[in-house]
Design a protein around this nucleic acid. Structure first.
Lengths: 117, 117
DNA sequence: CATTCTTACCTCGCATAACGAGGTAGTGAT
DNA sequence: ATCACTACCTCGTTATGCGAGGTAAGAATG
């Protein structure tokens, strides 16, 4: 009746940019590796499909938050490495604030208490 | 470039059920009042439009989480009062767990630490 | 009665975005 | 050539928040 996967897909909406930007704070990474780190960091809770990851990366690049560069792979095809731009760092900080505000708002409503910030 | 309203609309996706169910833990309420309380509790951060609230209520009713009843209003039209069913209470608890897991997952990824649960 | 105002609820169409499935290249083994 | 593996891309489906506009009840005005 209450499909866990379906719910999480909806919850994820809007948080992917934050997750991606935050992961890239570690430095330059290619898409596949970003997905793997997000998965690892979340303790396996978030398993991004490629159908959501790559479009998200493109959006962030279009928005000017990421800069990308192709590099030759050793035992495979080329990889596309992404790194944060200056605007990307700013976007990351803003996304963190958005998330923080949002999350505390949800907690306040969900817990039925008004004492949050 | 990074539209705050647009982002929050996406973040909200999937959390509305939790917000609504949690608000109804206070007891029987009609739609308009639910919206007002969510707004008040979130410190004005969440301003639900009717276009999202009513469909969400209908979904929850269809899912069996809410039970609704029409009542005559005093100086206006009838109101539809909603209350949690037994399944609704269960759904609320589950939604709280979902949210908790999700939020801590996001925090772990966003903060770049692996020491969370 | 018709008009207008307010409250409360409903619905249609649009836009966003996560996802599954299927497709494209490069390398190496058979 | 065929298969397997890696890494990336894209299309169509699906879910859902939201703005705009519509419905219904009662009261005040003419």
């Amino acid at each position: 009746m209450f499909d866990r996967q379906r719910i999480q897909a909806q919850l994820l909406k809007g948080t992917l940019p934050l997750l991606v930007l935050a992961t890239l704070r570690d430095g330059e990474l290619h898409g596949y590796e970003i997905a793997r780190r997000i998965r690892a960091r979340s303790g396996g809770a978030f398993t991004l499909s490629e159908g959501s990851l790559y479009p998200a990366l493109h959006r962030l690049e279009t928005d000017g938050a990421l800069e990308a560069a192709w590099r030759a792979g050793e035992g495979g095809p080329r990889r596309r490495y992404y790194c944060l731009t200056r605007a990307g760092h700013a976007a990351l900080e803003q996304a963190e604030r958005e998330w923080s505000t949002f999350a505390s708002g949800v907690s306040q409503v969900a817990l039925g208490s008004d004492h949050g910030g």
